[in-house]
Design a protein around this nucleic acid. Structure first.
Length: 590
RNA sequence: GCGCCCAUAGCUCAGGGGAUAGAGCAGCUGCCUUCUAAGCAGUUGGUCGCAGGUUCGAUUCCUGCUGGGCGCGCCA
């Protein structure tokens, strides 16, 4: 709607602008919301911008522009307000018609025009032999929302779960896990049944403790890493077991969270093991490599270290092994050549910003990102850390952090207590389903609603809140609409009436609904899910207010009832779709 | 030392060159014989960290400072 108005107004004012000697592109027209809805539906500050170049009073220009817009059909009211605003009120038919056009589209006008891009989306990136704790939530759910939004816009998304499955920590676990596994096999048991990731974590902690005090142990672990990476069959078999054991627990969490990653998306560090030597060779071929202190490095002038000297990107360690720089470089090549990516998005915490900036620069340096006349975009989508009560980021492997499964269990338990109290007549299995949707939704939303760049201190009550600006508030609005349909015996798919927009609350709701597509566009452009949360909260607020003031089933006339039902239908579909983009369920009853 | 991010109401956060800076929580007042009160309506609460600069206009952009977080050679 906003975009259509911009073009319409730009067209109308072309002649006027030319008179002032100014070109007027539609995008340059800023249409904002007036501070008070009573002033109008849209506000334009163009007169103040023109006043500068025209060297005339803004208010006079506003008056002239208002006169030019006054006879446009879609405007019911065009008013000038000091110091130089023009407030526009749309005709009811225009609002209603625009909303009807959106609802007529199965995708609510989210799909973009043009050829889809292939977007490789790297997120979650869980570590093997480590339980997911609250710090792992962010990459997983922010990445998931980005994937859903890109797909809704029509892009082809290839998800990649870059597992931490081939580094030193794995060697630590393998070192101590061998005996445990032999023991289990001797008893004829299946390790996948009897071992848990918590066990692996304990093994890891024991190993790190041993390595700390014993230099021989450290050597042993490094030897194991080399043997694993050179294909020792026994170690590989154990590694496989540990990986599957870890991932089976990860998938339980993904399922709880409604995260769309599957085994097909698993492309961990180990996947690139046979491409590492080739990657280094390719760097040599492009003349980027230098040896320094026994390690093979790429030095980039733009990155300086503490001493002010250029910082190396180490791609092969002095012991001949590879590190995560090499894995990421190999992954870039694979994603561009093997997966035909037009764009690669990394959803990783902000602390890795330097790492990715370096790795991207190396890829550019060697021309890997050039394809024909196009350049493949490599983007790091950063996010802040989850901090402990001391204000420090949660340590990755400390083991004292709140486990994700515990957080989700608690969330569902608290939600169940509320469902049980508010809606005791609901069948038991439905109560459980609602509790899951509400509890998990609350956790995801509490993270997503905040700008991703900010750190936050982990807090149970904040993450599990069920009132105020939370997922349950949005779900509640949705459930209330469904309840109207249920009580009224309404076949919602058969609604074809135009929505009603005469009451201020109806109008506010309708106008909010008109903005859905542009918000999703914005979320896509900036890769910032919290903008969608903000919008959906405002939408739910507009609905709740409408719900309070405008009876639907007992509306004064049958025509009004039908038109309000149409408005409800639009709100319900938009809320459901918006929640779906956030990966949050929208129960029809709660 | 260099680099990145951050500072807005008691708390948690939106906003981002333009009209009286907005929500949630907490506090106070009303509203359930009428579509789910997980709600609605109202109200209290702010020198937008400090100092300069650009601009008709700065909380928003620029510079400096203060205070926090993070990163900076063989962990990932």
């Amino acid at each position: 709607m906003r975009e259509r108005l911009q073009h319409l107004i730009a067209e109308r004012l072309t002649g006027y602008a030319e008179g002032l000697g100014i070109a007027l592109p539609a995008e340059q027209l800023e249409l904002s919301e007036p501070p008070d809805p009573a002033m109008g539906d849209f506000a334009m500050n163009l007169p103040m911008k023109l006043a500068r170049v025209a060297r005339r009073a803004p208010i006079a220009i506003a008056g002239e522009i208002a006169d030019l817009l006054r006879d446009v059909d879609v405007f019911a009211k065009v008013e000038v307000a000091p110091p130089g605003y023009i407030n526009l009120t749309l005709a009811d038919y225009a609002v209603s018609g625009a909303l009807q056009a959106i609802v007529a589209d199965a995708n609510l006008k989210l799909m973009k025009e043009g050829v889809p891009q292939t977007v490789v989306l790297d997120y979650s990136g869980v570590n093997i032999a480590k339980q997911m704790h609250v710090g792992h939530l962010r990459s997983t759910i922010i990445g998931d929302v980005i994937g859903r939004v890109l797909e809704a816009r029509g892009e082809r998304v290839i998800r990649q779960n870059h597992l931490g499955d081939w580094g030193l920590p794995i060697a630590m676990v393998l070192w101590k896990a061998g005996l445990v596994l032999r023991d289990i096999e001797a008893r004829g048991d299946d390790p996948l049944q009897v071992l848990t990731v918590a066990d692996l974590e304990q093994i890891y902690r024991d190993a790190t403790a041993a390595v700390k005090v014993d230099p021989n142990a450290s050597e042993e672990v490094h030897r194991i890493l080399v043997e694993l990476q050179s294909g020792d069959p026994r170690l590989l078999a154990d590694w496989q077991t540990i990986t599957r054991l870890s991932m089976q627990e990860v998938y339980r969490v993904y399922t709880d969270l409604g995260v769309q990653l599957t085994m097909e998306d698993e492309r961990g560090e180990s996947f690139y093991r046979d491409q590492l030597a080739g990657t280094v060779a390719s760097l040599t071929a492009c003349g980027a490599l230098t040896e320094s202190q026994g390690a093979m490095c790429v030095f980039l002038e733009q990155f300086k270290g503490k001493d002010g000297q250029p910082l190396p990107v180490i791609v092969q360690k002095s012991d001949g092994g590879y590190n995560y720089e090499t894995f990421d470089l190999a992954a870039i090549r694979f994603r561009i050549e093997g997966l035909s990516a037009d764009r690669v998005i990394y959803v990783t915490d902000a602390r890795q910003a330097l790492h990715f900036a370096q790795v991207f620069a190396v890829a550019d340096l060697c021309g890997w990102t050039v394809r024909g006349s196009e350049r493949v975009a490599l983007e790091h989508v950063t996010f802040g850390s989850v901090l402990g009560e001391d204000g420090k980021p949660l340590k990755t492997r400390s083991g004292e952090n709140v486990k994700l499964v515990d957080l989700l269990d608690e969330a569902v338990a608290r939600a169940y207590a509320v469902v049980n109290e508010k809606n005791p007549d609901l069948p038991e299995d439905q109560k459980r389903a609602v509790a899951r949707a509400v509890g998990i939704g609350a956790v995801k939303y509490s993270d997503l609603r905040q700008d991703r760049n900010n750190d936050y201190v982990f807090d149970w009550d904040r993450m599990l809140a069920l009132v105020g600006n939370t997922a349950p508030y949005l779900q509640y609005a949705h459930a209330r609409i469904c309840s109207i349909f249920r009580k009224g015996g309404v076949e919602e798919d058969t609604i074809t009436t135009a929505p009603e927009v005469s009451h201020p609350a109806e109008r506010a709701l309708a106008l909010k609904l008109l903005a859905f597509a542009e918000v999703v566009e914005d979320v896509e452009a900036e890769l910032r899910p919290h903008a969608l949360c903000t919008y959906l909260y405002e939408l739910a607020t507009a609905f709740s207010s409408f719900y309070d003031q405008c009876p639907v089933l007992t509306a004064e006339t049958e025509a009004s009832k039908q038109a309000r039902l149409a408005l409800c239908r639009a709100a319900q579909r938009t809320l459901a779709r918006g929640l779906d983009l956030l990966g949050i369920e929208a129960p029809r009853e709660m």
